[in-house]
Design a protein around this nucleic acid. Structure first.
Length: 392
RNA sequence: GCGCCGGUCGGAUAGCGGCUAUUCCAGGAGACUGUAAAUCUCCGGCCCUUUGGGCAUCACUGGUUCGAGUCCAGUUCGGCGCA
């Protein structure tokens, strides 16, 4: 993997660039679509390609449990297995330490609403995940069987899955965890990062697969900076910024971190993807994003438009003969009305998920492309202002 | 005409004489940020001084009872059977 910066904005953080992988280039900034189990839910790879996605991110935990990494390796790795010939990423399974442990809490907290900042120690519940210095022991969500991940094991599995860009094994913490716990988890993540890196470098796969280290530190500036210094000093090919955030504060956190990370390597903001966050992330030096939001909310009937999100299940759309977004050029918008999409959702037709996912992914992927273009043309600030004022 | 069975929210249902009349679907709305998610949460009779409180309600009328959706009688509507 190689990374080139083609243009930097005068703010010193934002940049336009290109990541070269063995399976093609990614023009950055870019939104990477999520295909957790080796499929972007409800879509064929042809549809994913046609809507403009440049790369797909799959998940180590899920593919390990089913169908198992040996199948992936035998079939010709992730690209062949899922018939996607473009660049691929895999997450290390570190997010599942959080999502399986803490439950349905979001990793993005809305402190303004909840009013609470972590006093109690929120640690991953012992139910599905147990953490120790060496790694984690977890139960399969499929059959309850017991399994163990260590940094070395996660990387080994990611080698077999064979994505172009893989991530170090980390621990994603809850935004409501105490600072004490954030420190403890962050330091452990740093040790795991070094072990991930050592294992990776000792294997042949490191010649074709790139390994990104992950910065943690929760909502705390001092921790974010410390994590960026330590992870940034390690010989990773690029970096992921992970963990939990305050909704109002994502871009600040990103800025703190990116001022410290080495400039010449790509930075991926893990699991973030609301329109406002894309602007904020890019402005603060992010090169790639991934996020489940576009596809998940699409399946649940929420659709992006230039004028904000709509819920297509609302009664007002039953007889609305307009498109989802009059200015959108996606397959869905060029062929179908809101009334039709509304009908598909109300009658629980599978096509609803497909058409909605195509639209939402196109909207987000294309938004990042538009942002990139605005940077190339030196019009970032103006584009950001006009988009956000209209959207929110 | 006779006999039997039944009538509980828009639909389908649960409900021993006592507690806030249950659940599912349909309906209304909201949420979702490295996917345990085609998921989850809330609302759904009327009224008020609405973080709560009050009054209703089980086809209709009457009765028994301290107390009735539940028991009894009549009425009515529907289903089935027999003439």
């Amino acid at each position: 993997m190689k990374f080139y910066i083609e243009k930097e904005l005068t703010n010193g953080r934002a940049r336009v660039g290109k990541i070269e992988t063995p399976h093609g280039d990614i023009q950055t900034p870019a939104f990477i679509v999520v295909g957790t189990k080796g499929t972007v839910k409800a879509l064929t790879v042809e549809q994913v390609k046609e809507l403009g996605a440049q790369a797909v991110l799959a998940n180590t935990y899920h593919l390990y449990l089913q169908p198992g990494e040996e199948i992936l390796k035998k079939t010709g790795k992730l690209q062949k297995f899922m018939n996607w010939d473009g660049p691929t990423f895999t997450d290390s399974g570190g997010f599942q330490v959080f999502s399986l442990g803490v439950g349905k809490d979001s990793k993005v907290s809305k402190v303004a609403e909840s009013g609470e900042i972590a006093n109690e120690v929120i640690e991953p519940a012992a139910k599905l995940v147990k953490i120790d210095e060496e790694g984690i022991t977890f139960k399969s969500i499929l059959d309850g069987s017991s399994h163990r991940f260590t940094p070395e094991r996660s990387i080994e599995i990611q080698h077999k899955i064979g994505a172009d860009i893989i991530f170090a094994f980390d621990e994603c913490t809850s935004p409501f965890a105490s600072k004490e716990y954030q420190i403890e988890a962050m330091k452990r993540t740093h040790r795991w990062a070094q072990r991930s890196l050592d294992y990776h470098r000792s294997k042949e796969e490191s010649k074709v697969q790139a390994l990104f280290g992950i910065v943690q530190g929760g909502r705390h500036k001092d921790l974010r900076e410390e994590s960026a210094r330590i992870i940034g000093a390690m010989d990773f090919d690029g970096f992921g910024i992970g963990g939990s955030f305050d909704k109002e504060d994502i871009y600040n956190s990103v800025g703190w971190v990116n001022d410290i990370l080495p400039k010449g390597k790509p930075r991926h903001l893990l699991g973030i993807g609301e329109p406002i966050d894309l602007f904020g992330g890019i402005e603060n030096g992010i090169d790639t994003f991934d996020c489940v939001t576009p596809t998940r909310i699409a399946r649940n009937g929420a659709l992006y438009t230039r004028d904000g999100r709509i819920n297509i299940m609302n009664s007002s759309f039953i007889d609305d003969l307009g498109m989802i977004d009059a200015e959108c050029d996606c397959y869905t918008c060029t062929n179908y009305t809101r009334a039709y999409i509304s009908h598909l959702f109300r009658s629980k037709e599978m096509l609803a998920a497909t058409l909605a996912s195509i639209h939402n992914l196109y909207f987000i992927v294309n938004l990042v492309k538009e942002i990139r273009q605005s940077m190339v043309e030196g019009k970032f600030e103006g584009f950001k202002k006009s988009f956000l004022e209209r959207y929110y």
